[in-house]
Computed example of a mutant assay.
Amino acid sequence: MSEAHRHGGVVVLGGGVIGLTTAVVLAERGTDVRVWSPEPPGATTSAVAGGLIWPYRIEPEKQALEWAVRSFRHFSWLAEQPPTTGVRLVRGRMPGSAPPPEWTALTGTPPRAPLVDMGTYLRYLRGRFEAAGGRWEQRAARSLTEAAAAAPTVVNCSGLGARQLVPDPTVSAVRGQVLVVEDPGIEEWYVAASDSARETTYILPQPYGVVLGGTADDGAEDREPAPATAAAIVERCAAVHPELATAAVLEHRVGLRPFRPSVRLEAERVPDGRGGTSLCVHNYGHGGAGVTVSWGCAVDAARLVGPPDPAG
């Protein structure tokens, strides 16, 4: 019998895609789960993500690929469900890049990969979590000890917040800026790396418009969109699809990816403030691939929490 079941519950810290997916996996196997999040899903970094299921800026590379492959299968299943999941399988192009054989076997040639409308998908995840008996609480944990005092098991999916919460000084922000424009009729996604590690050209057709990107500014934490950066993104994307040069801009977005030299997915004991300890499973530091590896990481995190109690 796991601690989560023997003593009554798990608190998951973080309401982005990593926290919500982990909470879904736990709740659907019968665990009593609460999510603590300082903001609703639509206000998290996950909501800014372009939504293409493809490994990007995450270490360790081999393990990340395994997580991504497992996640790909679940996203492919979601794409066959009603549109309320927000997931579609879409053809695309990635010139100048040779994916690992394991990834090519999944996506085919030309690649066909899941493309996720993150706003719709995060609402779907929260609904699926609550349908499984999970509870959402909009609150911020001031420390791991505070969360440990509330439950015998804590799952730390706090992303960039882990820098202060753990604290973990190896966590840093990688700023990403994108914009959304009216769709002039683009049906396939396009991703290409540039000569600069700070820039990538991507064009992702979504139901609400086309997402154009992007940037990767290590250590930058300014959340205000930079007009010059937006103009440069449009120029790069218009070199691929000239009609994007005059497409009406619908929205500018900035997100801070929670990067770490390697994902932290492990368990430890943390003080509960009462002289004892609680189990804490860390699941953070996914960089720019949080959505892509979310299901694979969630299953591994749930395994560290322990098996459900067959006696209920």
Rank of each mutant, 00 (worst) to 15 (best):
M1R: 12
H7D: 14
V12C: 02
G15K: 01
V17M: 03
G19M: 00
L26K: 03
S37W: 00
E39F: 11
P40V: 03
G42S: 15
Y56N: 05
R57Y: 13
K62R: 15
E66A: 14
A68H: 08
V69C: 14
R70C: 04
F75D: 07
T85A: 11
R88P: 02
L89W: 09
R93M: 10
T104V: 15
P110W: 00
T120F: 12
E130N: 03
A132Q: 01
A132M: 06
S143N: 05
L144I: 11
C157S: 04
A162K: 00
Q164E: 15
P167K: 05
V171Q: 01
A173F: 07
V180Q: 05
I186G: 04
S196N: 12
R198P: 04
E199R: 03
T201W: 13
I203M: 11
I203L: 07
Q206C: 03
P207M: 06
Y208S: 10
G214Y: 09
T215R: 00
D217I: 14
P225D: 08
A228N: 10
E235D: 12
R236E: 01
R236K: 10
A238D: 04
A245L: 11
V249D: 12
E251N: 09
H252Y: 14
F259K: 10
D272L: 06
G276S: 09
T277M: 08
G288D: 05
V291E: 00
W295F: 12
G296T: 06
G296I: 06
G296P: 04
A298E: 08
L304C: 12
V305Y: 04
G312W: 13
G312T: 13
